[in-house]
Design a protein around this nucleic acid. Structure first.
Length: 419
RNA sequence: GUGGCCAUAGUUCAGUCGGUUAGAACGCCAGGUUGUGGCCCUGGAGGUCGUGGGUUCAAAUCCCACUGGUCACCCCA
């Protein structure tokens, strides 16, 4: 390890030239799935008013409570680097009156998010998420479109070791009632629960059921689940989601203990986890949030969306040895002697301007070194040009893949390589 | 915020019981008859052994602190 003066901030990572092709490939695959589902990209600012996130994500969540990158700008306003994408998308939806132009707005986003957590496998402080929002539809059909689209992205990228879990977290009518029932039950065994879970009984009893603590799991094994306490509307909606998933041939398991971390979810909640990841095994999560738009000052607008982590997806693809087509020059033009260097440079420029990816030596290297470089760059062809070729008007074009070579008129190069 | 593990060439790693010029592989550079890559051969460059203290005749090796990395808890995508 070299002792460098500057390092990237803890929890941030450089995506290096050797890695960016995979990112670009994955990003374009994600985009094409979104486009096929007719979701359009929305690009919102990377920072917003702190209050936007506090209001939407929930004052009591860890994200808002202790993980946001919040600072005062020079005018004293409280600014926060976005910790997730939904709040910004909804803010933009309301601010730009998108709901007035269309009954249903389908948008997606892809970009960096920021949370000041302790880094570990699959978790960074600047990380990347992609996600989508269908704003303006109350139907189970929309929930399932979102879920199907998420699954389709993973299928498209060749993932197989993932599972879809779904739940319904009820609405503003049935959830409070259920929470009360659960709270009463939990209070009976409070003393035996982990301290973390004890704290949650009051604030967020549903999280106790989601505890990773084995003992907590045992103790709460027989507890009432929200799926048994949904009101008629929520139950009907949930049934419809399940039957549509089945109709679409998407396997799922119902997990009555699944809770989403953000406060704004209602009815459908889902999570996709992978067995190919470490402790941080959630690949994507999402659900319905019928109250959020109104909460942020818009009209009552039922909506559903999801968010997924790029780095976790990358980890799986890298582990599987996923290969992307490499970026390589069509031709490397090598100068056999100094007399030809000028011609080589200008010809390389001409080829590039004709749309042919070309490379030549910029380091005044020997012919042998240039050929090695051509090979290292995986150029398809190498053209060797010296004074002799310039005088004769033709040169040797070598195919570096099948090792054949042929004479070619210097005036024919553009035409040949353009084929 | 809490805890475990780790730190030696560009990279991945060896380095015995503490013993004097710190190694390998890959990568990089240069050659292998004067104009041709990949394979092969030869040679070369490249290290304050993370930093600072301590123990010792002697520290990459033992001890402490710090820094950084990493994994896990928590939480979440």
């Amino acid at each position: 390890m070299s002792s460098v003066n500057y390092r990237s901030i803890k929890g941030t990572k450089d995506i290096l030239p050797t890695e960016s092709p995979l990112w670009q490939f994955v990003e374009s695959t994600i985009r094409s799935v979104f486009h096929q589902f007719n979701y359009k990209e929305i690009r919102t600012p990377i920072f917003e008013s702190t209050s936007l996130f506090a209001r939407s994500i929930g004052e009591l969540t860890d994200i808002v409570g202790k993980e946001m990158y919040t600072f005062q700008d020079r005018s004293g306003d409280s600014i926060t680097l976005r910790p997730e994408g939904t709040a910004s998308a909804i803010r933009a939806y309301i601010q730009n009156n998108l709901g007035e132009a269309l009954p249903l707005t389908k948008v997606y986003y892809l970009g960096p998010m920021f949370r000041q957590e302790r880094p570990q496998a699959g978790r960074l402080r600047q990380f990347h998420q992609f996600g989508a929002e269908a704003i303006g539809s109350p139907t189970a059909e929309t929930d399932v479109e979102i879920i199907a689209m998420t699954i389709e992205i993973y299928k498209r990228l060749g993932l197989t070791q993932y599972t879809l879990q779904i739940n319904s977290v009820g609405d503003e009518e049935c959830r409070p009632k259920y929470k009360e029932i659960l709270r009463t039950e939990l209070q009976k065994i409070a003393g035996s629960l982990s301290t973390e879970s004890q704290k949650r009984i009051d604030q967020n009893p549903m999280r106790v059921l989601d505890s990773k603590d084995e003992n907590d799991q045992k103790l709460t094994a027989g507890m009432p689940l929200i799926t048994d306490h949904l009101n008629e509307e929520c139950a009907k909606h949930f049934d419809r989601v399940k039957s549509l998933l089945t109709a679409y041939g998407i396997p799922f398991t119902v997990n009555g203990r699944l809770v989403r971390g953000l406060d704004y979810y209602t009815k459908t909640a889902f999570e996709i986890t992978s067995t190919e990841l470490g402790s941080q095994d959630a690949l994507a999560g999402g659900g319905r949030y019928d109250l959020l738009v109104k909460e942020l000052g818009g009209k009552q607008t039922p909506s559903v969306g999801f968010a997924a982590g790029m780095e976790r997806l990358m980890m799986i693809l890298e582990k599987k040895g996923f290969q992307t087509p490499i970026q390589r020059p069509k031709v490397f033009i090598a100068a056999a002697d100094d007399a030809a260097r000028q011609w080589v440079l200008t010809t390389t420029m001409v080829l590039r301007s004709r749309g042919i990816a070309s490379e030549c030596d910029l380091l005044s290297r020997s012919l042998k070194s240039q050929m090695k470089e051509a090979d290292r760059q995986r150029a398809e062809f190498a053209l060797v040009v010296g004074q002799m070729e310039l005088d004769g008007g033709k040169a040797v074009l070598k195919n570096l893949t099948d090792h054949t070579q042929q004479d070619i008129l210097l005036s024919d190069i553009v035409g040949f390589l353009n084929k």
